[in-house]
Design a protein around this nucleic acid. Structure first.
Lengths: 161, 161
DNA sequence: GTCAGTCAAGACTAAAATGGTCGGAGATCT
DNA sequence: AGATCTCCGACCATTTTAGTCTTGACTGAC
């Protein structure tokens, strides 16, 4: 429940990676270098073609800029600070809302329950809180995190260092 | 995105309704009366059989008590205040987490990306916030809400009164 | 100009989650 | 005991998601 889709995961990973590269964190002598789909896919062990589709979507939403040809690839289109998690999720998965009835395009498909729906108002508050939370975090907030190492000793479960 | 499943919706509606009935809000002379699946389904215009399954699950998680036979039905098993939204969602949809890797049962199915996963820690913070939010709201908080009426005038979209 | 490497776009398949259905087991009342 | 009303749990259909494959267009280097 509440689980992010794989595509959303991949989008966040890719953006975070591009932000790190851009900052010079990964290759100090070459900030702002362009990265291509293959590099990101291999780095994170995710299927190339799927990631490609995700990056395409991000490009369509002006979060990254694409460059064709050899030595081509993608580049962040904005400051990491200006790309919120909420924006990314909406780009990948469409408008986010806890229930459909909060963002109906056409008014005629409204759910049958609506007039007896007793949970609409309280859930709306929940949704607003979550949306606010996701809007307050950006790609920048995902950088410079100490990587979480998992120690796989014999029979202990993953231990967080 | 972040959308609740129908089953989760139905569960919350049913619990809220049962809480209202129990409080005497709907039938002042008969608080604590037992309600059956059919009544809830008709009241909210939701498919009977599906709701039945949802209530079944809630019974398994000790949120409602079931009673068989004629005049049977369901009853809240706890105070509305003691049933949090988080508990309901977890009962219906399994443990909630933004990504799978936060609640692995067996350590061997861990995702391939884990050792290069750069978004794990920040997302964990997001997840904790959401979980806290959902844990802080109970069925009681969903009662006594002024129902949200939708006015369907000719060409205006739904207007909130 | 050719060629290799890159993004763009779509159709297609496979697998999983979700929504919805059915026949039967248990309890109550007459 | 029988009829009836209820919950229970296995079952099927549909939708969504994840992933693959193919084709095409653009760019830069040789």
């Amino acid at each position: 429940m509440l689980k992010l889709s794989k595509k959303a995961d991949y989008a966040l990973m890719a953006l975070q990676y591009m932000a790190m590269v851009r900052s010079g964190e990964t290759s100090p002598f070459n900030p702002n270098r362009i990265v291509n789909t293959k590099e990101i896919a291999e780095e994170h062990h995710i299927p190339l073609e799927l990631l490609a589709k995700v990056l395409q979507t991000l490009a369509k939403f002006d979060m990254v800029e694409s460059q064709n040809g050899p030595k081509g690839g993608y580049l962040l289109a904005r400051e990491p600070r200006e790309i919120t998690i909420a924006q990314v999720l909406e780009a990948i998965e469409g408008p986010l809302g806890i229930a459909d009835c909060y963002h109906e395009k056409d008014e005629h498909v409204s759910c049958e329950q609506i007039e007896h729906c007793n949970i609409r108002t309280p859930l709306l508050r929940v949704q607003e809180s979550i949306f606010h939370l996701l809007s307050s975090m950006s790609i920048e907030d995902m950088m410079a995190e100490p990587p979480l190492i998992i120690v796989e000793s014999r029979k202990t479960k993953g231990v967080q260092l």
